[in-house]
Protein backbone atom coordinates (compact mmCIF):
# COMPACT_ATOMS: atom_id res chain seq x y z
CA UNK A 1 0.00 0.00 0.00
CA UNK A 2 1.34 3.35 -1.03
CA UNK A 3 1.81 5.89 1.72
CA UNK A 4 0.18 9.00 0.37
CA UNK A 5 1.76 12.33 1.04
CA UNK A 6 -1.21 13.46 3.11
CA UNK A 7 -0.60 10.65 5.53
CA UNK A 8 3.11 11.36 5.41
CA UNK A 9 2.61 15.00 6.33
CA UNK A 10 0.35 14.00 9.19
CA UNK A 11 2.96 11.64 10.57
CA UNK A 12 5.62 14.29 10.40
CA UNK A 13 3.37 16.71 12.26
CA UNK A 14 2.64 14.04 14.86
CA UNK A 15 6.31 13.47 15.46
CA UNK A 16 7.01 17.18 15.70
CA UNK A 17 4.37 17.43 18.42
CA UNK A 18 5.62 14.38 20.31
CA UNK A 19 9.37 14.77 20.08
CA UNK A 20 9.93 17.63 22.57
CA UNK A 21 8.07 15.69 25.23
CA UNK A 22 9.86 12.47 24.32
CA UNK A 23 13.25 14.15 24.57
CA UNK A 24 12.47 15.38 28.06
CA UNK A 25 11.21 11.94 29.03
CA UNK A 26 14.43 10.40 27.78
CA UNK A 27 16.37 12.92 29.82
CA UNK A 28 14.23 12.41 32.90
CA UNK A 29 13.73 8.66 32.83
CA UNK A 30 15.60 6.73 30.17
CA UNK A 31 18.97 8.34 30.72
CA UNK A 32 18.99 8.03 34.53
CA UNK A 33 17.91 4.38 34.43
CA UNK A 34 20.34 3.52 31.65
CA UNK A 35 23.07 5.38 33.46
CA UNK A 36 22.38 3.35 36.60
CA UNK A 37 22.79 0.12 34.65
CA UNK A 38 26.10 1.39 33.27
CA UNK A 39 27.42 2.81 36.50
CA UNK A 40 26.53 -0.33 38.45
CA UNK A 41 29.45 -2.08 36.74
CA UNK A 42 31.89 0.43 38.18
CA UNK A 43 33.21 1.15 41.60
CA UNK A 44 32.95 4.85 42.14
CA UNK A 45 33.30 5.90 45.75
CA UNK A 46 35.62 7.64 48.18
CA UNK A 47 38.12 4.76 47.90
CA UNK A 48 38.46 5.40 44.17
CA UNK A 49 38.52 9.16 44.78
CA UNK A 50 35.08 9.30 43.13
CA UNK A 51 36.54 8.11 39.82
CA UNK A 52 34.75 5.20 38.10
CA UNK A 53 36.83 2.02 38.05
CA UNK A 54 35.44 -0.92 36.14
CA UNK A 55 34.58 -3.75 38.49
CA UNK A 56 32.16 -5.91 36.52
CA UNK A 57 29.54 -7.53 38.69
CA UNK A 58 31.36 -6.83 41.93
CA UNK A 59 28.66 -4.46 43.13
CA UNK A 60 26.04 -7.15 42.66
CA UNK A 61 28.14 -9.71 44.52
CA UNK A 62 28.48 -7.27 47.37
CA UNK A 63 24.75 -6.62 47.27
CA UNK A 64 23.91 -10.31 47.54
CA UNK A 65 25.58 -10.54 50.93
CA UNK A 66 24.71 -7.05 52.15
CA UNK A 67 22.43 -7.66 55.13
CA UNK A 68 21.48 -3.99 55.29
CA UNK A 69 20.17 -4.27 51.74
CA UNK A 70 18.14 -7.37 52.59
CA UNK A 71 16.82 -5.72 55.75
CA UNK A 72 15.75 -2.67 53.79
CA UNK A 73 14.04 -4.90 51.27
CA UNK A 74 12.20 -6.69 54.08
CA UNK A 75 11.17 -3.34 55.59
CA UNK A 76 9.96 -2.19 52.18
CA UNK A 77 7.90 -5.33 51.77
CA UNK A 78 6.34 -5.03 55.24
CA UNK A 79 5.60 -1.36 54.72
CA UNK A 80 4.18 -1.85 51.23
CA UNK A 81 1.98 -4.83 51.95
CA UNK A 82 0.59 -3.46 55.22
CA UNK A 83 -0.16 0.00 53.93
CA UNK A 84 -1.64 -1.10 50.62
CA UNK A 85 -3.93 -3.65 52.27
CA UNK A 86 -5.09 -1.18 54.92
CA UNK A 87 -5.57 1.56 52.35
CA UNK A 88 -7.57 -0.70 50.08
CA UNK A 89 -9.96 -1.77 52.83
CA UNK A 90 -10.34 1.73 54.18
CA UNK A 91 -10.51 3.28 50.71
CA UNK A 92 -13.24 0.90 49.61
CA UNK A 93 -15.28 1.73 52.70
CA UNK A 94 -14.86 5.46 52.19
CA UNK A 95 -15.70 5.20 48.51
CA UNK A 96 -18.93 3.38 49.32
CA UNK A 97 -19.90 6.07 51.85
CA UNK A 98 -19.01 8.87 49.41
CA UNK A 99 -21.20 7.21 46.80
CA UNK A 100 -24.30 7.51 49.02
CA UNK A 101 -26.74 10.32 48.29
CA UNK A 102 -25.88 12.55 51.23
CA UNK A 103 -26.56 16.18 51.80
CA UNK A 104 -23.26 18.04 51.52
CA UNK A 105 -21.67 15.23 49.56
CA UNK A 106 -19.47 17.70 47.69
CA UNK A 107 -17.96 19.07 50.89
CA UNK A 108 -17.50 15.56 52.23
CA UNK A 109 -15.57 14.63 49.09
CA UNK A 110 -13.44 17.72 49.39
CA UNK A 111 -12.58 16.80 52.97
CA UNK A 112 -11.92 13.21 52.04
CA UNK A 113 -9.40 13.99 49.30
CA UNK A 114 -7.58 16.64 51.31
CA UNK A 115 -4.86 14.37 52.74
CA UNK A 116 -3.86 13.22 49.26
CA UNK A 117 -3.13 16.76 48.10
CA UNK A 118 -0.91 17.82 50.99
CA UNK A 119 2.91 17.69 50.84
CA UNK A 120 4.10 14.39 52.24
CA UNK A 121 7.12 15.92 53.93
CA UNK A 122 4.93 18.34 55.86
CA UNK A 123 2.44 15.63 56.71
CA UNK A 124 5.33 13.58 58.01
CA UNK A 125 6.14 16.45 60.39
CA UNK A 126 2.56 16.50 61.56
CA UNK A 127 2.56 12.77 62.24
CA UNK A 128 5.95 12.95 63.91
CA UNK A 129 4.38 15.42 66.29
CA UNK A 130 1.28 13.27 66.77
CA UNK A 131 3.44 10.28 67.66
CA UNK A 132 5.85 12.32 69.79
CA UNK A 133 6.61 10.27 72.87
CA UNK A 134 6.54 13.24 75.25
CA UNK A 135 3.91 15.62 73.96
CA UNK A 136 2.20 13.59 71.25
CA UNK A 137 -1.56 13.32 71.28
CA UNK A 138 -1.54 9.57 70.66
CA UNK A 139 0.35 8.84 73.83
CA UNK A 140 -1.69 11.38 75.73
CA UNK A 141 -4.94 9.72 74.64
CA UNK A 142 -3.64 6.23 75.38
CA UNK A 143 -2.59 7.32 78.87
CA UNK A 144 -5.84 9.13 79.58
CA UNK A 145 -7.84 6.11 78.46
CA UNK A 146 -5.67 3.95 80.66
CA UNK A 147 -4.65 1.68 77.81
CA UNK A 148 -0.96 2.03 78.65
CA UNK A 149 0.83 2.76 81.90
CA UNK A 150 3.71 4.67 80.39
CA UNK A 151 3.85 6.38 77.03
CA UNK A 152 4.90 4.30 74.03
CA UNK A 153 8.16 5.45 72.53
CA UNK A 154 6.56 5.40 69.10
CA UNK A 155 9.37 6.58 66.92
CA UNK A 156 12.09 5.18 69.16
CA UNK A 157 11.15 1.50 69.11
CA UNK A 158 11.36 -0.68 65.98
CA UNK A 159 7.85 -2.15 65.98
CA UNK A 160 5.93 0.97 66.94
CA UNK A 161 8.01 3.06 64.51
CA UNK A 162 7.03 0.85 61.58
CA UNK A 163 3.42 0.96 62.71
CA UNK A 164 3.58 4.75 62.95
CA UNK A 165 4.92 5.26 59.42
CA UNK A 166 2.40 2.80 58.02
CA UNK A 167 -0.47 4.62 59.72
CA UNK A 168 0.79 7.97 58.44
CA UNK A 169 1.02 6.57 54.92
CA UNK A 170 -2.46 5.09 55.17
CA UNK A 171 -3.80 8.48 56.17
CA UNK A 172 -2.01 10.23 53.35
CA UNK A 173 -2.83 7.93 50.45
CA UNK A 174 -6.17 6.29 51.23
CA UNK A 175 -7.95 9.19 49.47
CA UNK A 176 -6.22 8.27 46.22
CA UNK A 177 -7.79 4.82 46.35
CA UNK A 178 -11.15 6.23 47.44
CA UNK A 179 -11.25 8.56 44.43
CA UNK A 180 -10.44 5.83 41.95
CA UNK A 181 -12.91 3.40 43.47
CA UNK A 182 -15.60 6.07 43.73
CA UNK A 183 -15.28 6.69 39.99
CA UNK A 184 -15.62 2.97 39.46
CA UNK A 185 -18.69 2.78 41.69
CA UNK A 186 -20.34 5.61 39.83
CA UNK A 187 -19.75 3.85 36.54
CA UNK A 188 -21.83 0.85 37.64
CA UNK A 189 -25.30 1.29 36.16
CA UNK A 190 -27.97 1.81 38.78
CA UNK A 191 -30.42 -0.49 37.01
CA UNK A 192 -28.18 -3.48 37.72
CA UNK A 193 -28.81 -2.96 41.42
CA UNK A 194 -32.47 -2.36 40.84
CA UNK A 195 -32.87 -5.53 38.80
CA UNK A 196 -30.98 -7.52 41.40
CA UNK A 197 -32.96 -5.97 44.25
CA UNK A 198 -36.21 -6.91 42.52
CA UNK A 199 -34.86 -10.45 42.44
CA UNK A 200 -34.78 -10.18 46.23
CA UNK A 201 -31.09 -9.64 46.87
CA UNK A 202 -29.98 -8.16 50.19
CA UNK A 203 -27.67 -5.18 50.47
CA UNK A 204 -24.74 -7.43 51.22
CA UNK A 205 -25.53 -9.70 48.30
CA UNK A 206 -25.71 -6.67 46.02
CA UNK A 207 -22.29 -5.57 47.21
CA UNK A 208 -20.84 -9.02 46.95
CA UNK A 209 -22.36 -10.01 43.58
CA UNK A 210 -22.45 -6.72 41.69
CA UNK A 211 -20.25 -4.05 43.25
CA UNK A 212 -17.15 -6.12 43.92
CA UNK A 213 -16.93 -7.98 40.60
CA UNK A 214 -17.58 -4.86 38.55
CA UNK A 215 -15.16 -2.85 40.64
CA UNK A 216 -12.38 -5.40 40.34
CA UNK A 217 -10.49 -3.74 37.47
CA UNK A 218 -10.44 -0.43 39.35
CA UNK A 219 -9.35 -2.14 42.54
CA UNK A 220 -6.45 -3.83 40.78
CA UNK A 221 -5.47 -0.60 39.05
CA UNK A 222 -5.51 1.32 42.33
CA UNK A 223 -3.47 -1.40 44.02
CA UNK A 224 -0.96 -1.34 41.16
CA UNK A 225 -0.48 2.41 41.43
CA UNK A 226 -0.29 2.34 45.20
CA UNK A 227 2.05 -0.60 45.22
CA UNK A 228 4.56 1.20 43.03
CA UNK A 229 4.32 4.36 45.11
CA UNK A 230 4.64 2.56 48.44
CA UNK A 231 7.54 0.53 47.11
CA UNK A 232 9.45 3.74 46.45
CA UNK A 233 8.34 5.59 49.60
CA UNK A 234 10.90 8.19 50.62
CA UNK A 235 9.65 11.56 51.92
CA UNK A 236 7.43 10.22 54.65
CA UNK A 237 9.93 7.91 56.30
CA UNK A 238 12.91 10.18 55.71
CA UNK A 239 11.21 12.98 57.61
CA UNK A 240 9.42 10.93 60.27
CA UNK A 241 12.14 8.51 61.34
CA UNK A 242 15.01 8.91 58.85
CA UNK A 243 15.00 5.10 58.73
CA UNK A 244 15.41 4.70 62.45
CA UNK A 245 15.43 3.54 65.06
CA UNK A 246 18.48 1.47 64.21
CA UNK A 247 17.40 0.94 60.62
CA UNK A 248 14.04 -0.53 61.65
CA UNK A 249 12.18 1.60 59.13
CA UNK A 250 14.93 1.92 56.55
CA UNK A 251 13.25 1.08 53.26
CA UNK A 252 15.10 0.54 50.00
CA UNK A 253 14.87 4.10 48.75
CA UNK A 254 16.30 5.45 52.00
CA UNK A 255 19.17 3.01 51.72
CA UNK A 256 19.83 4.11 48.14
CA UNK A 257 19.74 7.74 49.19
CA UNK A 258 22.13 7.17 52.07
CA UNK A 259 24.48 5.14 49.90
CA UNK A 260 24.71 7.92 47.36
CA UNK A 261 24.44 11.04 49.46
CA UNK A 262 26.03 10.04 52.74
CA UNK A 263 28.59 7.40 51.74
CA UNK A 264 29.13 8.84 48.26
CA UNK A 265 29.22 5.26 46.95
CA UNK A 266 27.83 5.96 43.49
CA UNK A 267 28.64 2.64 41.84
CA UNK A 268 27.03 0.60 44.59
CA UNK A 269 24.08 3.02 44.74
CA UNK A 270 23.58 2.46 41.02
CA UNK A 271 23.44 -1.29 41.50
CA UNK A 272 20.81 -0.79 44.23
CA UNK A 273 18.82 1.34 41.80
CA UNK A 274 19.06 -1.37 39.15
CA UNK A 275 17.86 -4.11 41.47
CA UNK A 276 14.99 -1.98 42.76
CA UNK A 277 14.04 -1.09 39.21
CA UNK A 278 14.02 -4.73 38.10
CA UNK A 279 12.00 -5.81 41.12
CA UNK A 280 9.44 -3.12 40.46
CA UNK A 281 9.20 -3.92 36.77
CA UNK A 282 8.73 -7.60 37.52
CA UNK A 283 5.91 -6.99 39.98
CA UNK A 284 4.25 -4.41 37.74
CA UNK A 285 4.47 -6.76 34.77
CA UNK A 286 2.80 -9.56 36.72
CA UNK A 287 0.13 -7.19 38.02
CA UNK A 288 -0.53 -5.70 34.57
CA UNK A 289 -0.92 -9.16 33.16
CA UNK A 290 -3.52 -9.92 35.80
CA UNK A 291 -5.20 -6.60 35.15
CA UNK A 292 -5.39 -7.16 31.42
CA UNK A 293 -6.99 -10.54 32.02
CA UNK A 294 -9.61 -9.01 34.28
CA UNK A 295 -10.22 -6.22 31.80
CA UNK A 296 -10.44 -8.69 28.94
CA UNK A 297 -13.75 -9.87 30.37
CA UNK A 298 -16.12 -7.15 29.29
CA UNK A 299 -18.42 -5.57 31.82
CA UNK A 300 -21.98 -6.82 32.05
Amino acid sequence: MRVSTIRGREQITAWVLVIPALLLLVLGFAYPIGRAFWLSQFTENLATKLQPVYSGLENYQRLAVDSRFWDSLKNTAVFTVCSVVLELLLGLGIAVVLDQPLRGRGILRTIAILPWALPTALIALAWQWIFDNQYGIVNDLLLKLGLVQTGVNWLGEPGPAMLAVILADVWKTTPFISILLLAGLQAIPQDLYEAYAIDGASAWQQFRRITLPLLLPQILLAVLFRFAQAFGVFDLIQVMTAGGPGGATEVISLYIYATVMRYLDFGYGASLVVVTFLLLVAVVAIASFGLSRVRAHPRN
Partner: peptide
Protein backbone atom coordinates in the same frame (compact mmCIF):
# COMPACT_ATOMS: atom_id res chain seq x y z
CA UNK B 1 -2.83 11.73 14.67
CA UNK B 2 -1.46 8.63 13.05
CA UNK B 3 1.75 7.87 14.83
CA UNK B 4 3.70 4.71 14.19
CA UNK B 5 4.65 3.09 17.45
CA UNK B 6 1.85 4.86 19.29
CA UNK B 7 0.95 1.81 21.37
CA UNK B 8 4.53 1.41 22.56
CA UNK B 9 4.71 5.06 23.57
CA UNK B 10 1.50 4.69 25.55
CA UNK B 11 2.65 1.58 27.39
CA UNK B 12 5.96 3.21 28.24
CA UNK B 13 4.15 6.29 29.55
CA UNK B 14 1.93 4.14 31.75
CA UNK B 15 4.88 2.29 33.20
CA UNK B 16 6.84 5.46 33.74
CA UNK B 17 4.01 7.01 35.80
CA UNK B 18 4.62 4.20 38.27
CA UNK B 19 8.33 5.01 38.73
CA UNK B 20 9.40 6.13 42.19
CA UNK B 21 11.62 9.19 41.93
CA UNK B 22 14.46 7.47 43.79
CA UNK B 23 15.14 5.43 40.64
CA UNK B 24 16.00 8.48 38.57
CA UNK B 25 17.43 10.68 41.29
CA UNK B 26 21.01 9.38 40.91
CA UNK B 27 21.12 9.99 37.16
CA UNK B 28 19.53 13.41 37.51
Amino acid sequence: LRLPGEQIVLVVLLIVTLFPYILVFLGL
